[in-house]
Structure formats: C-alpha cells, structure tokens
Amino acid sequence: MKIYYKKNFISGVVCLLLGVLNPLTCLFVTGWDRFTWKDGWLSIALVLAGMQMLLRSLDPTAARKDLTEDLDERNRLIELRSQAASYRLLFRLVLAGIVICMLGYGISRQEAFVHALLPLLLLYLAAGIARLVTLLRYEQTT
C-alpha cells in the first residue's frame, strides 16, 4: 500500500480519528446521555469524509487529480483574492461599527456604546498591525 498524496492522507486520518473519538468521549468521559443526534450525524459525516480522503490518497489517479486541484494556480489566486476581499470587508465593517458606537455615545451618552466600542477598537488595531506586518514582510521578500 502506497500513499500517493500525504496531505490528503493526514487530513483523512485526522477526520477519521475525530469521528471515532466523538462517540468514545461520550462513552468514557461525559456519558451517553450527553450524546445527541447532532453528535451522531457529525461523527458519521467525519468518518465518511475521512474514509473518502484516505481512499483517494491511496488511489494514484484520484491522488493526482486532488494534487492538481490543490496546486492549480487559478485556484490559489481565487483563494488569495477571496481572503483579501473578506479582510477588506471585515476591516470596513469594524470601522463602521466604531463610527456607529461613537455617534451613539455622542447622541445618547449610554455606556453600552463604550462597552461595544472597546473590542471593536482592539479588533481594528490588531487588523491594522497585521496589515502593516504583512506589508513589510512582502515588501522585503517580493
């Protein structure tokens, strides 16, 4: 038995393990009364997905197809662009939230707006720092 695509094989093993460990933790740790239908469906889905990934990683044709899909330059570009677009959208949403909170506090003087503003400011600051660090990194390496 030869593994043709290691990444899929590892993902398959992880999925399979999670699918098996979910009911096992209920059996030995939390008790069966905590095991619901949702857990059952999740376990079945994880086991099936894991098995599919394992089988595909062991089949040369399927593994080659999966590898081509993963390395495909257009797929990678789409992934990068969607990540960049979602970052931009979140950045603007946080900024809009900050403005709304400031206006809200200015008009109503309610402290709830200040409580909502603080985490938004932290998020905005973290996003700004992350942007600056990545910008500097890619400026140096590209």
């Binding site: 081509t68 899909e69 390395l71 495909d72 330059e73 257009r74 797929n75």
Partner: peptide
C-alpha cells in the same frame, strides 16, 4: 490539455 500542463480543466 489540462492534464498535459498540470492544471485543472476550469483553468
């Protein structure tokens, strides 16, 4: 063609 140049057919 996709198989010859190692990309997906969507590309």
């Amino acid at each position: 063609l996709a198989e010859r140049v190692h990309v997906s057919s969507r590309t």
